[in-house]
Design a protein around this nucleic acid. Structure first.
Lengths: 222, 222
DNA sequence: TGTACATCAGTGAACGCGCGTTCACTGATGTAC
DNA sequence: TGTACATCAGTGAACGCGCGTTCACTGATGTAC
């Protein structure tokens, strides 16, 4: 019983073992950075959380910057992949705003520390243009994924987007992150459903738009 | 010539001199924190920029946190006072969105470093609830000022706001800060006029709103 | 107005600490024969 | 299958540095007489 894990581990090749160490370090970094922040957490903290030593960090990553870069990049990739599924599974036609807003807010509630880390790192990026350039790619992919979803929904349900998708996407992410930051600082100052209501507002048909194609839910979005 | 400032200074009372020192330190802190960030700048940097020593900082402020708190609080108060004037002077009826958006963006362009500092400190606040509680008051005042302006405009020009003012205010600040953060990281990824266009969109009349009271500029906001 | 003492804003040096990074070493894995 | 050497992931200790904070001191300003 006690020896199982070690004995199993002893069968791993050098390469496999290294991959495990790396994974352990990334998990530990996620937890520790979330708890203490990037600046506030030391590599000793990370190593200890992983049950290893600082040397293991430097054996697997260039330095502290590299570690968090890999960490956040991998998380962003995962989120990008999950984004589509989430919305498609949950949102009925005409309910995207409410569901999307609520979904985001509950996700935020559960991942407070991760968002905080994102903001901290965003500031770090703004002060380190070289890092920023690399990280831009990941965010661009996330935006594309989101834009693609909105475009498809709009076509399927026959409504017009109020702005070019790319711009709309950027604006929605901006709105979301702005609300997020406010809530992180003082949850009481931002209503739970503000994001959802803004989404509804933004997607609502305007005077001068033609009436939605008959059938479906004519007066839906109100 | 050379002796003028010192000789004049020699006439100041202890109190006046201390006030001058404090002001010098705050100016220096504003410059240094903007340049290097709050975490990145040392109190030695601040003191040196002010032509003083660290001891002067500790003689005028409790510690580093207190220094930036006072600094940002004073700036916020100034901004709150100027906010009303700015919009009233510049924006013709029906042009609030365009002017407001453009105004904000050009202000951002000129004060890049200050915004960066704001975000850095916001994260700091989110991790230090005690600090956050005090700083909330300043932001609440800024929001009230903004809400008051929007309320008045809406009445004067006879349109309806799409959400309760308080919520709308929070949402607009959130959108603005979200766009700001994106632009700080990578200006190329956010169009200059995105904020203005979103404002226009948000204030645009919707299907189901009654037509605007005759006269004025009936089909204006399009 | 002048003198003697009190106050206190700002000095300058030292303290203590934590942290990122480096490095010689080790022991388990891999390789060649 | 077994042996001898090479490799290299991870160890553990040391290095060096910067920084926030403290503190005994000083000299200019304030106060009392």
């Amino acid at each position: 019983m006690m020896g199982l894990v070690p004995r199993a581990a002893a069968r791993l090749s050098r390469e496999e073992k290294k991959a495990m160490t790396r994974a352990k370090l990334l998990d530990a970094a996620a937890a520790v950075f979330a708890r203490k922040g990037f600046a506030g957490a030391s590599l000793d903290d990370v190593a200890e959380e992983a049950g290893l030593t600082k040397g293991a960090v430097y054996s697997n990553f260039e330095n502290k910057d590299d570690l968090i870069e890999v960490l956040l990049d991998e998380r962003l990739t995962r989120q990008t992949e999950e984004l589509g599924k989430l919305i498609d599974e949950r949102a009925a036609p005409g309910q995207e705003a409410e569901i999307g807003g609520a979904l985001y807010m509950s996700y935020l509630e559960e991942n407070r520390d991760y968002y905080l880390l994102d903001f901290e790192y965003a500031v770090h990026l703004a002060r380190n243009p070289k890092l920023a350039r690399r990280s831009s790619q990941g965010h661009a992919r996330l935006e594309s994924a989101m834009a693609e979803i909105m475009r498809r929904r709009a076509v399927e349900e026959g409504y017009e987007l109020p702005l070019p998708v790319e711009d709309l996407t950027k604006a929605l992410f901006a709105l979301g992150s702005g609300i997020t930051l406010q809530r992180l600082i003082d949850p009481a100052r931002v209503p739970d459903d503000l994001f959802a209501r803004m989404l509804a507002l933004i997607f609502e048909p305007r005077q001068g738009d033609e009436e939605p194609a008959a059938g479906k839910d004519g007066k839906a979005k109100r």
